Simulated scan of single mutants.
Amino acid sequence: MARKELVPGIGRLSRSQVYARRQLYKGKKTGTAPAKPEAAPTKEVQVKGSKNGGSRLVPTSKAPRYYPAEDVPKPKQSRKTAKPTKLRDSITPGTVLILLAGRFRGKRVVFLKQLESGLLLVTGPYKVNGVPLRRVNQAYVIATSTKIELGDFKADVKYNDSYFSKSEKKRTRSAEDEFFEDGKPKEKESFPESKVADQREVDKVVLAAVKKTEYLAKYLKASWGLSKGEYPHQLVF
């Protein structure tokens, strides 16, 4: 039989080993501690002497007598308030924009509306040049003089910033399984059918407006780029 103590007063098992062996982690604490009444910040104290007012309000907890030796860093509070992003005057619903950065740089897109974050909601349309509904920063676009008349069309309220946010998914496999499966083709997630229907719904209106102008579809399909000796500040878009 194994001894419980190595020497008198020193146990053979550590505190964590005893905790695991007795399975104390399985016991649920059902009792709840009684709520402590909140102490008042001040209390009234009687003061002797006719000239001292009779009573005074004294704080219940005294301030520390000594200050800390080192200054405790505190985050700097900014007094600036966030202002909504101002849209350039040259960008209006239906304006054809040229993307300057990102996956679809050099493509021409149609501006639909500005989102709450200040980003621009644009579409290719997808059937013309392969650019889907997406958000872009107005700092990375060039507004052209070409404009498409969309009439009374307004992008639905559901097309907001949360519409484009990625869904958070939990990891179903362990890191070890992913390490040994490295090199194998990963399974691609299928694109939601609801967003495919939304793309067709928006492009239906935009395409109808594009077809009213001759060669406008070819203009949107063509990519933009600078040739040798061309400078963007000298061009008229």
Rank of each mutant, 00 (worst) to 15 (best):
F237H: 03
V206P: 01
V196S: 00
G11W: 10
G31F: 15
K28I: 14
S167K: 15
Q138E: 07
S165A: 15
S14V: 10
V122C: 14
A217K: 08
L119M: 15
T95Q: 07
D161I: 07
P84L: 03
R22N: 15
Q138R: 01
K107F: 06
S227M: 05
T123W: 05
V122S: 12
E187C: 00
K184Y: 09
P84N: 04
E38M: 08
K29L: 13
T92V: 13
T85N: 00
K74M: 06
S174W: 08
S90L: 03
L150M: 10
G31E: 11
Y215G: 12
L115T: 03
G54D: 08
E193R: 07
S50I: 10
Q77Y: 00
L87E: 04
D89Q: 08
T60Q: 11
A35E: 14
T123L: 05
T146G: 00
A222F: 00
A33T: 13
L112Y: 03
V196G: 03
T172Y: 07
D71R: 11
G102W: 05
P8D: 13
K195V: 06
R22F: 12
W224E: 06
R134Y: 03
K154T: 15
Y126S: 07
A82K: 12
S167G: 09
S223E: 13
S14G: 15
Y126D: 01
R79S: 10
R105E: 15
R134E: 02
T81H: 12
A20Y: 09
S50T: 09
V131I: 01
D161S: 04
S190N: 08
P37V: 02
V128W: 07
V18S: 08
V7I: 13
Y231G: 00
E38I: 12
F179L: 15
K154G: 04
L216P: 02
T30F: 14
E44V: 15
G11T: 11
Q77K: 10
K186G: 00
L115W: 02
R21L: 15
I148H: 06
E70T: 09
E70C: 01
S50G: 12
P59C: 02
P232I: 13
T146Y: 13
L133D: 06
A139E: 12
T95Y: 03
F180P: 00
P8V: 10
S14T: 15
K4F: 07
R108M: 03
P185H: 09
A209R: 00
A2P: 11
L13F: 10
V157N: 13
L6Y: 07
G53L: 06
E5F: 06
E38F: 05
G118H: 10
A20T: 14
L97W: 01
I148M: 04
L57P: 04
E214V: 09
